Amino acid sequence: MRKKAFIGSLFLIVLLLVGGMFYTLPYYVTKPGMAKVLKPIVKVKNGYSEKGDFMLTTVRMGRANIYSLAEAKLSQFEEIYPADLILAKNETEEEFNVRQLYLMANSKQNAIDVAYHKAGLPVRYKYNGIYVLNVMPGMPAYGKLQAGDRIFKVDEHSFSSSKEFTAYIEKKRVGDQVKFTILRKKQTKDVKLTVQRFKDQPNKVGIGIALVDDKDILVKPDVDVKTDEIGGPSAGLMFSLEIYNQLTKDDLTKGYKIAGTGEIAPDGSVGPIGGIDQKIVAADNAGAEIFFAPNEHGSQKSNYRDAVKTAKKIGAKMKIVPVDSFNEAVNYLEKLPAK
C-alpha cells in the first residue's frame, strides 16, 4: 500500500515538474543570443571577398515558464519583461512574430538602399501592395484576414502606395462591400468585407487592419540576404556594412572580426536597439575585436554607454565604437590599420 502511495506521489511530482515546462506565464525572458558571420548570409553577385568578418548579434527571447523565470532572476544577463511591454495592444504572438519578420525585411531593404547609394549605384523600388501586420478584434477583417497577408488588389484596382489604399477605403460608406485579392502562403484568394465604423473613432470607417507597404528593392548587381527566421530591425547597420564591402574593392574588415548592432534608416542614420548588454556578451563569446554601438548623439543613456559598461563588467577586450550613421562606421574602418 505504501509502495503504491509512493509511486502515485512520485508520478504526481513528475507530472507537476513536466507541466511547469509547458505552462507559460505573462512574461518574456531575453538572454544573449549569438554573433552570426554575415558572409554566408549576404551574397552580392560577383562581389569582392574579405579577409575579416562582419557579424550581426542576436538576443534570444521566449515566453517564460516557472523554470526560465527562476533562471532569469538568478542570471546577470537575462532580462524579464511583462508581456504587455513586448506585445502591442490586441496583438497576438503570431502577429508579433510577423511584425518582427517585417521589421527584419524592412531593415534589409534599408541596408541595401544605403550601401548601394554609398557605392554610387542606382536603386529602384517595385510596389507590390499592402502587407497586413495585425487585425483588430471586432472589425470586419477579424477572422477573415491574417497577419502576413499581402493585399495586391482592391475591387480589382491596384495602388502604388498604402496611402492610396487607405484613401480608397476611407471614401467608402458604412455597409459598403469591398473585395480584397490577397496572397497567403503562396495562394491567391478573394476576401469580401463590409466596411464599418471604428468604435473609438466613429467618424472613421475601415476594415480594421494595421498595414505597411509591400515593396521590393531593385538593384544591380543582385544581392541576396538570407535571414531565415531572424526578426527585428537591429541588424541593419551590419547588413549595410557587409553589402557595401562586397560592392567595393577595398576590404573594410582588414582582417578583423567586427560585430555591432543598430537600426539603419534610409538616410544612413543609426538608431538604438534593445538588448545591447546581451549582444555585447554574444559578440565577446564569438571573439569579436570591434563592436559598433548606436551613440544616440551622445545621450547619457545611449546604447554605446551601456555597451561600454557591459564590456568592462565581463572583461571584454573588444573595442566599443560609437556611431550615429553608416558613414561614421565606414570612416572608422577606412582609417583602421590593416591587421
Rank of each mutant, 00 (worst) to 15 (best):
A311G: 09
N90S: 11
V323L: 13
H117M: 10
V225L: 03
G236R: 08
L74Y: 01
G236W: 12
K279Q: 07
D324S: 12
T58A: 12
S68C: 05
K89W: 11
S240N: 06
Q187H: 04
L38S: 08
N285M: 08
K144V: 00
A64H: 08
G255Y: 12
Q109A: 13
I320C: 10
K31F: 05
Y127P: 10
G231L: 08
Q196C: 05
D53P: 00
V44P: 01
E296F: 06
R60N: 07
V42C: 06
G262M: 06
K126V: 12
S325D: 13
N245A: 06
Y127E: 06
E95P: 02
K312S: 14
M1C: 09
G8N: 02
N90Y: 15
D277N: 12
G143H: 09
L10T: 14
K172W: 09
I151T: 05
K36R: 09
K313R: 13
T58H: 07
G255E: 14
Y256W: 09
Y27G: 03
G271P: 01
Y131R: 10
E50S: 15
Y116H: 00
I209P: 03
A316E: 06
Y67C: 08
A141D: 13
A286S: 13
L25R: 08
L211V: 14
L103N: 10
A35I: 11
K108V: 15
L16V: 15
Q278D: 01
G315L: 03
Y67K: 06
Y67I: 08
I230Q: 02
I258Q: 11
L247M: 05
L85I: 05
Q146G: 00
G232C: 14
I207E: 09
F6R: 09
R63Q: 13
I80W: 08
L247F: 05
